[in-house]
Nucleic acid binder design. Structure first.
Lengths: 123, 123
DNA sequence: TTATTATATAATAATATCCTTATATTGTGA
DNA sequence: TCACAATATAAGGATATTATTATATAATAA
């Protein structure tokens, strides 16, 4: 799930989406992105790092320059995995053990805050 | 593009992803989510609002209760639209006019900051 | 009407994100 | 080596997000 969060967080920012869209035209150097986007170089570098760390971009160093490109069809794959994640039997998902158990225990009284536990206190 | 940002931002948060995953088992009342997730009610309500405003969830009021459910296959549709957005001819995208023009003007000197403009200043 | 249930909203503090300015790093050519 | 080009990183302030606590709203039942 952490990967989903990371990727969606990376995509959920307008400047990064613009960078992605530009790089989907063709791979570019940072300095080219700077010309195209007309925003500051550190700002671009920082966003590129987030996208790279999410696995969405790859980089290729060429002398002083760095070439950035979309990382294959990773976005499609993550999207597919996410749809699958939503459709999967929740009992099979790691990290949802407690939730699965609590869903199984949901009964019609689940929403009644009143004296549910008072009587079971025994005396 | 704003819609993409809104949806990805909504998905890019662990608690909201958990809520989504739980609601993909079946629609639930807020109080049921509270039992299942074991987190505070305001926290759940606030996340539900974000998801609803992104269009990912729908709600149905039933007396005092509110029933929340996944909004059909909107996620799949947004994902599909986004892949299409990335593949589209950038010249056809609203909001990318300037970038399109600047890409067209990129030349081999695009990365040379030096005296590009000095000579053209005329004298 | 009054109390209670279910939910939403408001206010606040803690944390995270984003952008800018400044500086560091690394490679290249003079 | 020295200067510079290209990029990355660091530090700072401004803003946004998240979670908590407290309160408001709205429906229902007594």
């Amino acid at each position: 799930m952490d990967l989903f969060v990371k990727v969606f967080k990376a995509l959920g920012e307008p400047t990064r989406l613009k960078i992605l869209r530009i790089l989907s035209v063709r791979p570019m150097y940072v300095c080219e992105l700077e010309s195209v986007l007309n925003i500051s170089q550190p700002r671009i570098s920082q966003h590129l790092r987030v996208l790279k760390e999410a696995g969405v971009l790859r980089e290729a160093k060429e002398a002083q320059k760095t070439f950035y490109m979309l990382n294959g069809d990773i976005i499609e794959r993550v999207f597919g995995d996410f749809i699958q994640f939503l459709g999967e039997d929740i009992g099979k998902l790691p990290g949802f053990e407690k939730e699965t158990a609590r869903i199984a225990n949901l009964d019609s009284d689940s929403c009644v805050q009143s004296c549910k536990n008072v009587n079971s206190a025994g005396s």
